[in-house]
Amino acid sequence: MNAQKTATGDTNSFEFRGGLRTMSAALQKEMVLALSIWDDHEADMLWLDSDYPLNASVTAPGVARGPCSATSGDPKTVESIQPGASVIFWNIKTRPIGSTFTA
């Protein structure tokens, strides 16, 4: 992951927060599952499925991340089109890995 962040010029926030060592320590403790619907006022969700960062060439490694336009995730637009957006999460199971289904 560190090499990818270096190659793409992305901020390595995972490593900044302690990386795998911190994540491993956290997973040893009890956790609460939290799910939400959200939009991104910092990067307009472009990091997920568009060209990001906007100030980099789309031919640079890691910039072209998906087919969405650079204006597709603007929170003001999203919130004005879907002001009452909601989500329902259901059929969530918590058990040891591999025990909630049969292959």
Rank of each mutant, 00 (worst) to 15 (best):
S99D: 08
K76C: 02
P75H: 07
M23W: 13
R65P: 00
A34D: 15
I92M: 09
S50G: 04
G9M: 11
P83H: 08
A25M: 11
G62H: 01
L27T: 08
D51L: 05
E79M: 11
S80I: 05
R21Y: 09
R95K: 09
T22C: 05
S50I: 02
P83F: 07
N91I: 01
K76Y: 07
L33E: 08
S13A: 14
S72A: 15
T100N: 05
S72Q: 04
W90V: 02
L33G: 03
F89C: 03
G18L: 09
A64F: 03
R21C: 04
E30T: 08
W90D: 15
D51R: 05
L48W: 14
V32I: 13
A34K: 13
R17T: 09
S99L: 07
T100Q: 04
R95N: 11
P53M: 07
D40S: 03
S80P: 00
M31T: 08
G66W: 07
E30G: 13
K76E: 12
M1Q: 13
S36C: 08
S24P: 01
T8P: 00
L35V: 11
I92A: 09
V87W: 09
S72G: 04
F101E: 04
D39L: 06
T100G: 11
E30A: 14
H41M: 09
S99V: 01
T11D: 15
F16A: 15
P75S: 10
R17V: 05
P96V: 02
G66V: 06
G19W: 08
T102D: 11
S69T: 11
K76H: 08
F89P: 00
S72P: 00
T22S: 14
M23E: 11
S36Y: 10
S57C: 02
G73K: 00
E15C: 07
M45L: 14
D44A: 12
S24N: 15
A25Y: 06
A85P: 01
L27P: 00
R65Q: 02
P53E: 01
A103D: 07
D40K: 02
A3L: 13
N2W: 03
S36F: 12
M31Q: 14
S57G: 01
K5Y: 15
V87F: 12
L46Y: 01
I97N: 02
Q82S: 15
S36V: 04
